[in-house]
Design a protein around this nucleic acid. Structure first.
Lengths: 116, 116
DNA sequence: TCTTGACTTAGAGTTAACTTTAACTGTTAG
DNA sequence: CTAACAGTTAAAGTTAACTCTAAGTCAAGA
């Protein structure tokens, strides 16, 4: 299959239809097409894009910044440098965050072991 | 030093005075005392507690749940089992989250390398 | 043909976690 | 003594990210 209704796409990416429409309204999904009756049709490309949005969001990037990244993406090669710079900066942020999570994990484990 | 004004505590734990008062209002800091003029005095215990609140919050626990944990903590030994069960469950959540973060990190790195 | 159900929109409502405001009080430096 | 300052409270305001409602459209099955 290569085309999805909003319900199917929703199922596929594990986001509600509300959220998918919201993301589109916010400009994060500029390429979702509609059929003759005005209903959204999601392509595999859209699902992949949503997958990457979830990745960025899941690592703490705001929708506003994700839109900025997406806007650069739409401009293609011309904005490649800027776009990759964003990703590289974000990569550092994720690495930092993993470090912090590991530190916090140790704190929780210490508290568990403390038995007080 | 062993006693801190709200400004000093704020500095120490890197949270605004607003946030410290907010946490207290929400019942997360039940042991903050006041001086004769009604001003908050933070003890080392309070700062430690705030530190652990930051740990729980930083690993995705809601203030509501953190309060539940704190309430169990206040009940001492009687609620030790429940309390530790919460922490052990949370530990699993953190481990899961670190896994997801690592997966997302790889996705971002792949995108960087993709150069498209 | 009628109804059911999945969709559409614009806009309102919700939630968590702060953050600020307004009005006030007590302490301290000049 | 007084002005500035650091704190106090209750309550209102803010923000991000949804989430839902209301009113309507369209296509497909009995």
């Amino acid at each position: 299959m290569s085309l999805y209704t909003i319900a199917q796409a929703s199922e596929e990416v594990d986001l509600t239809p509300y959220t998918l429409r919201y993301y589109e309204k916010e400009g994060l999904l500029p390429n979702v097409t509609k059929d003759s009756a005005g209903r959204r049709k999601y392509h595999d490309d859209d699902l992949q894009r949503i997958g990457f949005i979830k990745c960025l969001k899941g690592t703490g990037m705001s929708l506003k910044q994700i839109k900025e990244y997406g806007d650069l993406y739409e401009k293609g090669k011309a904005k490649f440098k800027e776009r990759n710079a964003m990703l590289e900066e974000h990569r550092e942020k994720i690495l930092q965050e993993i470090k912090i999570q590991k530190k916090y994990l140790k704190m929780v484990e210490a508290k568990i072991e403390m038995k007080i």
